[in-house]
């Protein structure tokens, strides 16, 4: 059952990267900001959770909550430093993207100076147990990761559909200009969006640290994977991101089964490029609904 094993791994990894992809997607479509600072938010939240685990308690809910809060704080930081000063300036999209990159450079160096280059590991959140389903051994962390990210994603979708703030964010997605005319504050919405998406990145960080370690530069790979999934699914679309995460996870599983691990990125990018050539705005992005700003 090697292929099943690889498939479950792909699903686990895709559910983590899917969180970041949805975060990138929501930020782009509601604020028009290409936020490449999630790598920093990711490491920041990881270190935040690590500090809490070291000093306060290793009880899993507290560590996970610390990750969420750390991510939200990192997101709000980016919002305050980059989005709010720049959102009404000329060349906002370019400058915003470069600004978030600068934040990620500064932030990673600050983390490096503060905590040193050694990787840190978080306590096990989901304990040690495993379930056998149809001959597959599913370990506790895999189930926990998938369940946590589905819960988080479900919460985000529910909150966006059901709450007043979510309505504001969706209005910003449809037409930011009209939204600001009917009294939706761009800056306050920016803070909600960045806090929410930062919390998603923070959760992804805590979940991924069950498999890997926390290091100042560990946010880069999740960021690039997340951005690729968001791009492939269509920026601004949650279901597109989910579909793309599944397709790319499947590609990864199939490639590493039949070709070998070093070709994973190549096939993934070929798939992404093929999808983008057929549909330049991603799987469920509509060409004429592209955000103009």
């Amino acid at each position: 059952m090697e292929i099943a094993q690889i498939l479950t791994n792909a699903v686990v990894v895709a559910s983590i990267y899917g969180l970041i992809a949805v975060a990138v997607s929501i930020t782009w479509s509601s604020l028009g900001l290409v936020n490449l600072g999630y790598g920093f938010v990711f490491s920041f939240a990881g270190f935040w959770a690590w500090v809490v685990a070291q000093n306060v308690s290793e009880w899993p809910p507290i560590v996970a909550a610390a990750g969420l809060v750390g991510g939200a704080v990192g997101g709000i930081l980016i919002c305050l430093v980059v989005f709010i000063p720049l959102h009404d300036k000329p060349n906002f999209t370019t400058r915003g993207m470069i600004g978030t990159l600068a934040i990620s450079l500064i932030g990673s160096q600050a983390l490096l100076m503060q905590f040193g280059p050694r990787a840190k590991s978080l306590p096990e959140l989901f304990g040690y147990w495993q379930v056998d389903i149809a001959g597959m051994a599913l370990t506790s962390d895999k189930i926990g990761i998938v369940v946590c990210s589905i819960v988080m994603l479900g919460f985000v979708v529910f909150w966006m559909k059901g709450s007043r703030r979510g309505l504001e964010i969706r209005a910003m997605m449809m037409n930011p200009h009209a939204a600001s005319i009917v009294g939706i504050g761009i800056r306050s919405t920016g803070i909600y969006v960045m806090a929410l998406t930062g919390a998603m990145a923070g959760l992804a960080s805590v979940l991924l640290s069950q498999t890997y370690y926390i290091a100042p530069f560990s946010g880069l790979t999740p960021l690039i994977k997340g951005v690729s999934i968001a791009l492939c699914g269509g920026l601004g679309s949650v279901q597109g991101a989910v579909i793309a995460a599944m397709i790319l996870g499947l590609t990864e599983a199939v490639t590493s089964r039949f070709l070998g691990g070093q070709y994973v990125l190549i096939t993934q990018f070929l798939v992404i490029i093929l999808i983008l050539i057929v549909r330049p705005r991603g799987i469920s992005g509509l060409l004429d609904k592209a955000r103009e700003q």
Binding site: T221, I224, S228, P280
Partner: peptide, 12 residues
């Protein structure tokens, strides 16, 4: 920016 994000991935 779609192209920017794609090329970021190509670099990786």
């Amino acid at each position: 920016f779609y192209y920017a994000l794609l090329t970021l991935g190509l670099n990786e």
